[in-house]
């Protein structure tokens, strides 16, 4: 590490010096003039052999480069800082106030957070969001493993089309996905029609209005969306595994199943960690599908944080509580992502 770093430094010091040696072309703009380090001229030849002597010059050139770098980063920083980071901090700030979004506000300290953790409805929303991890993460990764293993097992015609199709749900607007499934689950919708046609009329129900089934029905939409992504991720991972590992396993007389558990799964750890991370974020941040299909009902069975935040701001006018819930939600996501990342590293 250290060595590489050193090498890097002297290389760029050389480059800086050389530019300086040859006069800069007239077209060079202000940025370039700023970059050039005049004091590096005299020392450039000796530099590489005696690092301690060129230090001050180098530092100055580094500072110039740093200034240039900051200039390049600035536009991105402004957009991200002003419209993402600042609102996020502002949201945390509001979460300490009791505010209806219209009138004056009062400082209430942690009271809104107490509400988030104790009010049944708010708890319920967080738990519902966490429960979606089963549908957005566990099922898709499981299904994805199987599908990817089957695809990887052998060359097939039509594999390209298969990928295109499997990946399709991932690129659709989630609102449209919600509308599609709202129709499929409808009382007279295709799913009930098929059930009736198959002589299973007893099983038909208003899927999205049923206290026992609505949550699963909405959750399954998440499975439908994310399975394709997980499959492709895992498939890409499988193709990277060194074939000689399978070779060795076969010599050890490991069957297909044992190969899967002893070679494939361990080799896929990085991809699994990524699939889990990405899908957990979409599970906890889900809004579009629930908003369109059930709006959080029946009762409160499918109320997730996103939907509740919307209601808290616009119906109940409890903006402080909404911000507290949003803050808890983002902290929760950050914590889970960190834990998943750590788990993925530790085991490997």
């Amino acid at each position: 590490m250290v060595r590489a770093d050193l090498r890097n430094r002297s290389a760029s010091a050389n480059a800086g010096a050389s530019i300086n040696g040859a006069p800069a072309p007239a077209s060079a703009g202000a940025v370039e003039a700023d970059r050039v380090a005049p004091s590096a001229v005299g020392t450039s030849k000796v530099d590489t052999s005696k690092p301690e002597r060129h230090r001050p010059a180098l530092r100055r050139s580094h500072r110039r480069q740093a200034r240039t770098a900051l200039l390049y980063i600035l536009p991105a920083f402004v957009f991200y800082g002003l419209f993402v980071a600042a609102p996020w901090l502002h949201s945390i700030w509001i979460s300490f106030y009791d505010w209806d979004g219209i009138g004056p506000s009062t400082w209430v300290g942690l009271e809104n957070y107490v509400a988030v953790l104790t009010e049944p409805l708010l708890q319920r929303a967080l738990l519902n969001g966490l429960g979606f991890i089963v549908f957005y993460t566990v099922l898709p990764v499981g299904l994805g493993l199987v599908i990817a293993a089957v695809i990887a097992a052998r060359q097939r015609r039509g594999a390209g089309i298969l990928r295109t199709i499997l990946f399709l749900p991932q690129i659709l607007p989630l609102v449209a996905v919600g509308v599609i499934w709202r129709y499929l689950y409808g009382t007279d919708g295709p799913i009930n029609q098929v059930l009736t046609g198959a002589g299973l009329g007893d099983l038909t129900r208003a899927w999205l209005g049923d206290f026992e089934w609505a949550y699963f029905a909405v959750g399954f939409v998440g499975t439908w969306v994310t399975t394709g992504l997980c499959t492709m991720l895992l498939l890409a991972g499988m193709q990277k595994i060194d074939p000689s590992l399978y070779e060795a396993a076969r010599i050890d007389r490991a069957g297909a199943v044992r190969q899967f558990f002893h070679v494939t799964l361990p080799g896929l750890r990085p991809e699994i960690v990524i699939a889990v991370t990405v899908t957990i974020i979409s599970a906890l941040a889900s809004f579009d599908v629930v908003y369109v299909t059930t709006g959080g009902g029946p009762g409160r069975t499918t109320t997730v944080p996103g939907v509740l935040i919307y209601q808290l701001v616009f119906t109940s006018n409890r903006v402080g509580v909404a911000c507290a819930l949003a803050t808890v939600l983002s902290a929760l996501i950050l914590a889970i992502v960190a834990v998943v990342g750590r788990l993925g590293k530790e085991r490997s």
Binding site: F77, G81, L82, A85, A86, P87, L89, H90, W93, I94, Y97, W99, D100, G101, I102, G103, P104, S105, T106, W107, V319, G320
Partner: peptide, 19 residues
């Protein structure tokens, strides 16, 4: 200092929300 600047911006914007 960058983070601080945004924090200040955030606080100014909302000093007490809705004031």
């Amino acid at each position: 200092s960058a983070l601080g600047a945004f924090a200040v911006a955030g606080l100014l914007a909302g000093c007490a929300p809705g004031a």
